[in-house]
Design a protein around this nucleic acid. Sequence first.
RNA 1: GGGGAUAUGGUGAAGCGGUUAUCACAGCUCUCUGUGGCAGAGCGAUCACGAGUUCGAAUCUCGUUAUCCCCC
Length: 452
Amino acid sequence: MFSIIKKDKKTKARLGILTTPHGIVKTPAYVFVGTYGKFRHLEAKDIKRTGTQLVIANTFHLWGKTDDLRLTTDNKKTFLTKSFGLKIPTMTDSGGFQVLSLAFDDKNKVGKFTPLEVAPPRSEGLATALRARLLTGFMTGDTKLDKNFKRTKIRITSKGVHFKYNDKNLFLGPELSMKLQKKIGADIIFAFDHITSPLDDYEYNKKAVELTDRWASRCLKLHLPLASRDGGTRGTTKGRQQTISALGRQQLFGIVQGGLFKDLRIKSAKSIGAMPFDGFGIGGSYTKKQIAKILKWVIPYLPEEKPRHLLGVGKVADVFEAIENGIDTFDCVIPTREARHGRLYTKTSHLDIRKGKYTNDKKVIEKGCGCLTCVSGISRQQIRKSLKDQPSHLVNEICNCRRQSLTRCEGQRWCLMHNMWFFNNFLNEIRASLVRGSYQRYKKSFLKKFGI
RNA sequence: GGGGAUAUGGUGAAGCGGUUAUCACAGCUCUCUGUGGCAGAGCGAUCACGAGUUCGAAUCUCGUUAUCCCCC
C-alpha cells in the first residue's frame, strides 16, 4: 500500500509512506543492494544502526540457494528475513538485470552506463572506440549501428532467457522468476523484463519493449489471483498454497523499458502503466546525463497514486534528479560497493580512505557524522589499516573453500556503516526539506557543499 | 692484508645475449549506477658507475664505488 502525504509545489517530488508486511518505508527512500540476501561484514544490528529502511536482493543470484528454506506460514519469517537476520522491508529484482549484466563475455563487456562521446584511446580501445563512434553516428541520425557486440552468453526467446553461467546452462523467464520471487518472499517483487544496452538500436529496443510487455502480463497473471485472493490476510489454505498465501501481500511492480528512445519509452510507460501493478519500476540503461530526461518522458504516463522505483540509479546527483522527477524509491550498489573499495562519502564530497595520506590521520571520517563508525571514534588511520592489512588473495582462497562469513573485515564494516548511514541521512534531510517546503534550497546548499 | 658474493622502479624479488625489462607490496591518478562478492585501469626503473666485446648487453669481460660474508 502506498499513500502520498505531500507533493512538492515546484517539482514533482512527493513524500509518501509505503506499507509492506515487514514494515513501513518513508519515501523518498534509498534502497540498498544486498544481492545475496545479506550485506557482507554487517550484522543485523549494524544494518539497523545505519537507519536503512528498504533493501533489495537478487533473484538470479539467490536461485538455488533457497532450497534449504523452510518457509513458515508466518509472514514475517521469509527467506530474506532470515538471511538478513532482521525484519525489514525487502525487494527482489527479478533477474531481469542479468539479461544485461551476464550477456557479454569479458572482451565484449557492455555496461549499463556508457559515456557515448568518449572514444577510449590506448590499449584495447579499438573495439570500444568503434562502437562509440558508430553509436554517436547513430545518435545524430545517420550511421547504421554497430554489429560488433554480441550477447554471447545469453539467448533470448519469447519464453525467457537461456544463460550460460559458470559452465551451466540456466533458463529463467517470467514464470520461474515469479515462482522464485514468491519463494524468496520479498515484500516487493519485480516483473521479469528485458533491459537493453545503450548500444542497442531502435529496432532492438522496440522488440525489447514488446517482450517486456508480454512478460509483464504473464507475471501479473501469476500474481493477481493470489494477491486478490489473499488480500493481505494470513493464509489458511493447505500445503503449498498455504506457503504462498502467507506471502500474499507481496506487491508486484512492472518495469518500463524503451532505452534511449522517447517514443519507445512513452509506449512502454503507457502499456506497463495501464496494467494493474502495485507499483512501477523504471529500468534500462542510460547515457550519463540522460536519466532525468527519460524520467520526464515516462513519469506522466504512470498512475500518480502508485509508487515508482528507479532501478539501479543512485549517485548523489542522481538522487536529486530522481526525486524531483517523481521517483519514490531507488536502489543502487554505489554506497555499498564503494564502501568496500574504500570510498567514503562526506558532505563535502568523499575521501578514498586507502590513500597514503590517511596513514596517520587520527580524525574520524567526518566530524559530526552520526554513523556508528564516526560516533565510536574510529579513526581514518584505523580504517585504512584494517582495509590495507586485508590480504585479498588470501581472502579469495578462503572464500573458495570455506563459508564467506569467516572473511569479515572490520574495516569494510566501518566503511559500509558510514556510507549507508550517510545516504540514509541524506534522504532524511531531503524528506525533511520536503516537509518544510524547502527542497530547492536544501538541494542548492547540499550540492554547493558537496562540490557538484 | 687475502678470498668470495651481491648491486634491477620506494621496498623485496625475477630475468643471465635480442622482452614494450617481469612480479608482489607500497605510492600517485582515475573509475565504480536493478553487484559476474572482497575490485578494475593507468603512471613511476634508460637494470650502481665507467669502459670494452658484440649487429645487439640488465645479461659476457675489465675497472671504479658501495654493501655483505669468510679467512688471517
